[in-house]
Write a protein that binds this DNA or RNA. Sequence first.
DNA 1: CCATGTACCTTGTCATGTAAGGTATGGGAT
DNA 2: ATCCCATACCTTACATGACAAGGTACATGG
Lengths: 114, 114
Amino acid sequence: MKKSVYKELVAASSRPMVLSILTGGENYGYEILKQVKLLSGGEVEWSDGMLYPVLHRLERDGMITGRWELTEKGRRRKYYRLTDRGKGQLARDRAGWRAVHGALEMSWGGGRHV
Amino acid sequence: MKKSVYKELVAASSRPMVLSILTGGENYGYEILKQVKLLSGGEVEWSDGMLYPVLHRLERDGMITGRWELTEKGRRRKYYRLTDRGKGQLARDRAGWRAVHGALEMSWGGGRHV
DNA sequence: CCATGTACCTTGTCATGTAAGGTATGGGAT
DNA sequence: ATCCCATACCTTACATGACAAGGTACATGG
């Protein structure tokens, strides 16, 4: 299994990633897990034991709202939808991420040629 | 003071940022703090209570080595230098960061044009 | 003389990933 | 029929790490 992503990086990206995926419409945990893997070209793989608590916290904090649904095949899923509050949080998270990413790129660039 | 950067993001970026700054040569804590602010255009400000433990961990883990020095003005500073081990860690951290950043950019892109 | 800047450090608290476990159902292979 | 894998959710014990707040010490300037 892949192990290039250290846990602090998972912690930093989980909220914006989930919120961002939900801008594409309602979605549920298990599918989000696969989306993350897909979006990263297989380089990032989240554990479900990390994702579900994230979803619960986001719901608790009003960033997303969930509703249970049963598929015809008898599987239960909890679909989540982004709230306005969640959209605001996503915007702030993106701003923070970009500030830090920019600083890192600067430091990696060795400082020269802008 | 600025507060756009949430703490998980600080945790995710502190190690690669410090190691990266040290690729530019020996440096000490207080100066690294100012470098980070400079590199981010003032958008990222670290607390010293977070940085010093980071430096201690990096030294403990052999990523950097420190030596004490006294300036003519009577100030004591602990200068740190990057080790080979630290260079390897930096490379891995960059790879991890880029994988996650790429996935985030993909999700932010809304899915259009690849 | 007193505030600010330089320069280091530590402790208590809280948040969060990981590892490991659990529950339950459906479908395909033997 | 039985077994295993995928689907789909959940939880707990543990370690890690930022933050707030405190501390030490000295130099400089008003």
